[in-house]
């Protein structure tokens, strides 16, 4: 396991600088508001928790009235719901999927299994704490949590988004070395996802001091190139 435990460390919160242009502020707030009112979720049905989502979406609880819709690909989604225990094999896919989502992106761990492994805590094949591998915004504990709980959780997230507090996705960029280290610990040093996180962080100025480190060096040494195909004349 990696040397530091980041799970409780807050992101190096650069307070959103109030811009001098009031119009820009209004615009930022509008975007944040829209983000909170339009959440596309990708439910990664790793385990039994998934069964509670359909009732949350359909006529009884109707998530759509809150602007929440299910989506099917990570590209389209804002929220990744991990609904149950995450086996190591699954974790690879979860990470891949997470990295393919466009920021701002949020992760909700549903069920106890995502918190601490739950009933699988003794299993050799299960990742116990999800937030060692990807930053998690919100856990909804329970085995399984009922739809009311899910919706309650989503509403909490909405509130956080509205005020620009749900910034855990920045953590992934800023402390990528840490997350990568944990991932490498589990999957071996050859571990690589197709998404170029470091490049993305650089492009969008999301780098922190801990983005690069010993683990990213390992990654660079083994990495298959992921530069986009440039258009060449």
């Amino acid at each position: 396991m990696s040397n530091t435990d980041l799970s409780n460390i807050e992101v190096n919160q650069k307070p959103v600088a109030k811009r001098s242009n009031p119009f820009a502020n209004v615009f930022n707030e509008l975007v944040s508001f829209c983000r909170s009112r339009s959440m596309f979720m990708l439910h990664y049905c790793t385990g039994c928790g998934a069964i509670e989502l359909p009732p949350a979406m359909t006529s009884r609880f109707d998530m759509e009235r809150l602007g929440i819709q299910p989506m099917v690909t990570p590209r389209q989604a804002d929220i990744l719901l991990i609904t149950g225990y995450v086996s190591i094999k699954t974790l690879k896919r979860v990470i891949l999927t997470y990295e393919q989502m466009g920021a701002p992106k949020y992760v909700i761990g549903i069920c106890s299994c995502t918190v601490n492994g739950g009933m699988y805590w003794q299993s050799y094949a299960t990742a116990k704490k999800l937030d060692e591998y990807i930053p998690v915004d919100l856990y909804i504990a329970g085995c399984m949590p009922r739809p009311e709980a899910v919706i309650e959780g989503l509403q909490q997230l909405m509130a956080k988004i509205k005020t620009d507090e749900a910034n855990s996705w920045k953590k992934y960029y800023e402390h990528y070395d840490y997350y990568l280290g944990n991932q490498q610990h589990l999957f071996g040093n050859n571990w690589q996802t197709p998404t170029d996180i470091i490049g993305e962080a650089k492009t969008y100025q999301l780098e922190g001091p801990n983005t690069l480190g010993e683990h990213t060096k390992i990654l660079e040494s083994v990495q298959r190139p992921l530069e986009p195909l440039e258009m060449k004349l």
Binding site: Q100, P194, T195, D196, T203, P225, L226, P228
Partner: peptide
């Protein structure tokens, strides 16, 4: 601005 990604970075 959109960032160009490699063709293998695909869902």
């Amino acid at each position: 601005k959109a960032k160009r990604v490699h063709q293998l970075d695909n869902y």
